[in-house]
């Protein structure tokens, strides 16, 4: 693992991505101090172009776009990370159980996974948010619910591949219980792939969240990049700044997370490393 991190640090693109994400983190932490009024505060004249007072301009209601981008960063990261984390935990549990116990349980869980994979992810997420009524929690649940199948398949595959290895047999031969083999031997040995894929999941979760917010399915009380773009799209020709800056924020964040994910994948995945 330590050698993997060293390899990661040698990857310049991944390092650049980490720097950008670190800046986004800083932004979320400092947002309450930079914009004490909050993003929904009507700060000035509507549709003002970028100026010294409003460096990113104001939107149609006179809200500060910069404050929105800063608060939106928090929303995106919060939802992205917690949804990806829930998806990883749930997916790993499903995949792990299927991959370790095999047999009918495996069959059942894998058909369930496939069922989720056959429904268009975004439609399912929309449906879930509508059913659960839009809120921060329901958005996280909806995104996690459409993201876990990939992780489940990955973990199952790794477990099946590792299950035939002699060190697992040796452990079973010592009398180790199922949970012991799963948590002490199987999971640590596929942790690096889970981390790599899980980090990429954060990026897709952020995109999903933005999409939901754009359609008005986000939490109405929380500022989000998707909501900003949605609000600015009617004045796209006259006031380009309303949509552009949140858009750039999404682009940079998702790109950076993808770079980090690729870097982690390359650094931690032994199969890729050999090539």
């Amino acid at each position: 693992m330590r050698a993997g991190l060293r390899r990661f640090a040698r990857n310049r693109m991944a390092l650049a991505g980490s720097v950008v994400i670190f800046c986004v983190f800083l932004l979320t932490v400092t947002a309450p101090f930079l914009f004490p009024q909050g993003a929904f505060n009507l700060a000035g004249q509507p549709l003002q172009p970028p100026s010294l007072r409003f460096p990113l301009g104001t939107d149609a209601l006179g809200r500060d776009v910069a404050a929105g981008v800063a608060e939106g960063a928090r929303t995106s990261l919060l939802i992205g990370i917690s949804a990806a984390l829930s998806a990883v935990l749930f997916g790993a549990a499903v995949g792990g159980i299927a991959g370790y116990y095999r047999g009918p349980i495996d069959l059942l869980l894998m058909r369930l996974t496939e069922f989720f994979q056959t429904i268009p992810a975004f439609l399912l997420a929309m449906l879930l948010v509508v059913i659960l009524s839009p809120s921060l929690l329901s958005v996280i649940i909806a995104i996690a619910a459409v993201s876990w199948p990939g992780i489940a398949r990955l973990v199952r595959g790794e477990f099946v591949a590792l299950g035939g290895r002699e060190f697992i047999l040796a452990s079973a031969g010592l009398g180790a219980s199922g949970p012991r083999i799963i948590f002490r031997h199987l999971l640590p040995n596929c942790l690096s792939s889970i981390i790599a894929v899980g980090s990429l999941l954060v990026a897709t979760a952020i995109l999903l969240e933005t999409g939901l917010a754009f359609l008005g399915l986000g939490d109405p009380n929380i500022m989000s990049w998707g909501l900003q773009i949605s609000a600015g799209r009617v004045s796209l020709r006259s006031a380009w700044w309303v949509c552009t800056f949140p858009g750039i924020a999404i682009l940079l964040t998702v790109l950076s997370i993808n770079l980090i994910g690729d870097g982690l994948n390359e650094a931690l995945n032994p199969r890729l490393r050999k090539r």
Binding site: E166, L169, A170, S171, H185
Partner: peptide
């Protein structure tokens, strides 16, 4: 289990690398 123990063929696959 403890009465019967096994030694495996492949010394590279029989020990948990982690």
């Amino acid at each position: 289990r403890r009465m019967v123990q096994m030694v495996f063929q492949d010394p590279y696959a029989s020990l948990d690398p982690r």
